[in-house]
Amino acid sequence: MVEQKVLVAEDEAAVRDLYRSYLRRNGFDVVVAANGKEAVALFFEERPDAVCLDLLMPVMSGFDACRAIREVDQQVPILFLSGHDDLPSKVEGLEIGADDYVIKPISPSELVARLKAVLRRAKASDPSFMFGENCVDRIARRCEHGKKVAKLSLRELQILEFLYRNPNRVVSREELYREVWAKDSLSGSRLVDQQLLVLRKKLHGDYVIDTVYGRGYRYTAPP
C-alpha cells in the first residue's frame, strides 16, 4: 500500500518531532516545516495528501500559509493545530479554507484519527450532486448557483453530503459532529454552528439549510 503523505508545519521542534514520529509509526509518510513559508515551499515540492498547520509561526503564519495553498489547491485537506480557542480565529480559519480547527494540546493519537477521517471522507464516487438549487462539485470542491461560484472546504463538503443523504429530517448538532468530525462529544456543537455559519454564506436559492430551534438543522429537498 502506498503511504499517504502528510505535511506538518510546527515551529516547536519537540512537538514537531513528536507528531512526525507518531504519524510515521501509524503508516504515514511525513514531511515537516518549521514555519509557514517553509510549509508552502514544501507543499509545492512534495504535494502531500494532507496538511497540518500550526497557527502562530515565524516568517509566515498558518493563516497565510493556508491562503497560499488554497490559491492553487482546493482539495487537499488542511487542519489547523492551534492554542487559540477564540471564535474569531476559528471562523477565520474555516473561512479561508481549513477543513478542521483543532485546539492544542492534541494527543498524537487524536491527530492520527482526525487525519484518517478527513482523508477517508475526501474520497467520493459521484463527481457532483444538487443541493437545492446549488450544484455541488465534489472533485473541484465548489458549489455553483447560476454564475455564482463558491469554493468549499472539505469539511463543508462533508456537511452538505451528510445533509443531502438525510433530507427532510432534523439532524442534531451532536449527530453532525459525530458523523462529519468523526468524534463523539457534546462539546462539538459550537464548532458545528460556526461551520454552518460560514457554509450558509456560500449557498443560494431556496431549499438550503434551516435551523430548527433547540434541535439542530434540516435540509428540505426540492419536491
Results as ranks from 00 to 15, higher is better:
16 R>W: 15
155 R>W: 11
193 D>I: 06
81 L>P: 02
101 Y>S: 01
171 V>R: 01
214 G>T: 11
217 Y>L: 02
47 R>T: 06
24 R>E: 12
147 K>P: 00
57 M>Y: 03
151 K>L: 13
168 N>S: 01
93 G>M: 03
142 R>Q: 15
130 M>E: 08
162 F>V: 02
95 E>W: 13
205 G>Q: 06
127 P>W: 10
12 E>V: 15
89 S>T: 11
210 D>W: 10
91 V>T: 06
131 F>H: 01
41 A>N: 06
150 A>H: 13
168 N>H: 05
30 V>T: 11
42 L>R: 10
46 E>T: 10
42 L>H: 11
144 E>Y: 04
204 H>Q: 07
205 G>D: 00
221 A>W: 04
33 A>S: 08
184 D>W: 15
137 D>R: 15
138 R>T: 15
42 L>I: 06
103 I>F: 06
37 K>A: 15
111 L>K: 14
123 K>C: 03
193 D>T: 02
219 Y>V: 03
171 V>F: 07
148 K>N: 04
64 D>Q: 13
138 R>N: 14
154 L>V: 01
13 A>L: 15
168 N>Y: 03
194 Q>C: 05
75 Q>M: 11
197 L>T: 10
156 E>N: 11
128 S>N: 04
71 E>N: 09
11 D>E: 06
162 F>Q: 05
124 A>R: 14
185 S>H: 11
157 L>V: 02
82 S>Y: 03
189 S>P: 00
9 A>V: 09
64 D>I: 02
11 D>P: 06
218 R>H: 05
137 D>M: 12
45 E>D: 15
67 R>M: 13
114 R>W: 09
212 V>E: 12
19 Y>F: 15
105 P>W: 08
46 E>P: 01
211 T>L: 14
10 E>C: 09
50 A>I: 09
74 Q>R: 13
36 G>R: 11
65 A>S: 12
102 V>D: 05
183 K>I: 13
192 V>S: 00
10 E>S: 05
10 E>K: 09
38 E>P: 08
218 R>I: 14
82 S>E: 02
102 V>T: 05
6 V>E: 06
171 V>P: 00
56 L>H: 02
91 V>H: 04
213 Y>C: 08
93 G>Y: 00
13 A>S: 10
201 K>G: 09
127 P>T: 13
138 R>C: 14
133 E>F: 01
114 R>T: 04
145 H>T: 08
7 L>E: 02
90 K>F: 03
171 V>W: 01
120 R>V: 00
185 S>C: 13
35 N>S: 09
147 K>T: 02
138 R>F: 04
189 S>V: 15
74 Q>K: 13
50 A>F: 11
105 P>R: 04
90 K>C: 02
39 A>Q: 07
117 A>D: 04
94 L>C: 02
126 D>R: 09
212 V>P: 04
120 R>P: 00
135 C>I: 01
139 I>N: 12
204 H>F: 14
216 G>Y: 07
177 Y>F: 10
49 D>Q: 12
219 Y>G: 03
47 R>Q: 12
24 R>T: 12
74 Q>E: 10
68 A>C: 05
140 A>S: 06
168 N>K: 05
140 A>D: 07
22 Y>R: 14
88 P>C: 02
97 G>P: 09
86 D>Q: 07
21 S>E: 14
90 K>I: 09
195 Q>P: 00
51 V>A: 02
178 R>C: 08
209 I>R: 07
